[in-house]
Structure formats: structure tokens, C-alpha cells
Amino acid sequence: MSEFLANIPFLAVAALICVALYIMMSQRNLIKVVMGVVILESAVNLFLVTLGYREGGVAPIFTNAPGTLMVLPVPQALTLTSIVIGVATTALMLSMIMLIYRHTGETDAEKSRKVKG
């Protein structure tokens, strides 16, 4: 049981991924699907940061640091990369949805699929 409680951050990642999958599967509004994708990205970022956490560590920055026991810097750098890529792809997806709405007057995936052109 204590082992179960110690892994609560990983369980939170699993719960977030399940929420995101449910949203992406059940919703038909394209904007809500994008919200699901963004929640999935957040889950992956949380997973990367929790993988790099060291018990009692501080942020890996030496300016006025209280000690040299630090959390791992490489997962944090990769999370930074992942966040910027997430922002860029989200902006692209939302622009596509704006164009689809302008073409068809719909943001619903089922209906806009039937309107050609």
C-alpha cells in the first residue's frame, strides 16, 4: 500500500491520459478534441518531469542554490522542448479548425465530413 501511495504522481499521469483518451474518443466537436490533445500533452509533460524528480532535490540552477543535490536537468530540458512543440502544433490545429468552420459553418467532425469542398 505504501508503494502504491509513493507512486501517486505516476497514477496522476495515468488518470490524465485516460481523461484525455475519453475526451478524444467521445467528443465530436473539433475544438473539444483539441482540448483532449492538449490534456494528453500535459500528461506527457508531467510524466517527463516526474521521471526526473529526485527526493529532496532543488532546481538544477546554481545561482544562490541551497545545495548541490539537484533534480535531473535532461528531462526538464526535454519537457521544455515538448511544451514549445505543443504550443506550435496547437496553434496549427486551431487555425485548421477556423478554416474548416469558415468553409463548412461547422466545427462538428461528423457533420463537416459530409460537406465537400
Binding site: 546554481f62 545561482t63 544562490n64 542554490a65 541551497p66 545545495g67 548541490t68
Partner: peptide
């Protein structure tokens, strides 16, 4: 080049 360890920056 700073030495290893915390410094004021």
C-alpha cells in the same frame, strides 16, 4: 568560467 557549486551569479 565559474567554479563548481552555488554562486551569486
Amino acid at each position: 568560467v565559474p567554479a563548481f557549486g552555488p554562486n551569486p551569479g
